[in-house]
């Protein structure tokens, strides 16, 4: 199992007394790979992200069965802070920066669990900013005043500040212009090339499958299909179901 960056076994989740949101879900993110998680709205993608990062209780959800492992360590019982320390970081859906804090402070907050010394913090920040040259000039700007694309960059950059082994990205292309989506895509690839494994949740299946090695398709809280990105791209059903309804800008980018 230790060749897996992230492994999820038989995971079931419930929100209060409502119906089961995830039902015995199993998936793996091999080290160094990008794995795409696709599916329609309400399929349970965000729920899976929360279960992995430990944010379920914030939304009133709870695990009814299953196990989450990061780099072979069982983190199922850890709080979010413990999971970040083990090497898991998440960029939330909808970007969710700290709007009143400056860009520099947002980044510093991302490195909070690592308790960096001053020099160390600067070094890590340099490395992260290398992926986001745009943010360099905005360090003292309040994050709430950044554009959508800049906020997305900041959200990913902030997550990278803890130098994670596994990065969870929840809908990074949501609501962004095609040009920006392309930039985001390139950044994700860059980060992956430097060794970070990535679980990428996307509505924009075309974009996701264009960079992922592997993909899972979720429906009703279960995995209904899994395979290599190439297989999934070649599958007519998938193409008509997900690539067809995917945002126009994504569909046009490769073919």
């Amino acid at each position: 199992m230790s060749d897996c960056a992230l492994a999820v076994h038989d995971l079931s989740v419930r929100y209060g007394a409502a119906a089961t949101a995830l039902d015995g879900l199993t998936l793996e993110v091999p080290r160094g790979e990008i794995v795409a998680l696709l599916g329609p709205n309400g399929a349970g993608k965000s729920t899976l992200m929360r279960a992995v990062s430990g944010l379920l209780p914030v939304h009133g959800g709870s695990l009814t069965s299953g196990r989450v492992e990061v780099l072979g360590t069982d983190v199922t019982r850890l709080r979010p802070s413990g999971r970040v320390r083990v090497g898991l970081a998440q960029a939330l859906e909808g970007r969710q920066v700290f709007p009143e804090l400056t860009v520099a402070e947002n980044l510093a907050a991302g490195g909070y669990v690592r308790r960096y010394r001053k020099a160390e913090a600067r070094e890590v920040r340099e490395r992260v900013l290398h992926h986001f040259p745009r943010l360099q000039d905005l360090m003292d700007r309040q994050a709430g005043y950044l554009s959508g694309g800049e906020q997305q960059m900041l959200a990913i950059g902030r997550a990278m500040m803890s130098q994670p082994s596994v990065l969870l990205l929840d809908e990074p292309s949501l609501g962004l212009a095609p040009k920006i989506v392309e930039t985001v895509r390139d950044v994700i690839l860059d980060i992956n090339r430097e060794g970070t494994s990535i679980l990428l949740v996307e509505q924009n299946a075309a974009m996701a499958l264009s960079i992922a090695q592997h993909g899972y398709i979720l429906e009703g809280g279960r995995v209904v299909r899994e395979g290599s990105a190439a297989e999934l791209r070649a599958d007519d059903d998938i193409v008509s179901l997900y690539l067809g309804v995917a945002p126009v800008e994504g569909a046009g980018q490769h073919g």
Binding site: L55, V58, V84, R85, V97, P99, G110, Y112, S162
Partner: peptide, 23 residues
């Protein structure tokens, strides 16, 4: 200070703070 920053981050956006590993 890091604690001061963490406190401001928590005040700004609780879920995002949690996601950064702020207790």
């Amino acid at each position: 200070t890091p604690y001061g920053l963490a406190l401001r981050a928590t005040a700004s956006h609780q879920e995002a703070a949690l996601a950064q590993g702020i207790d």
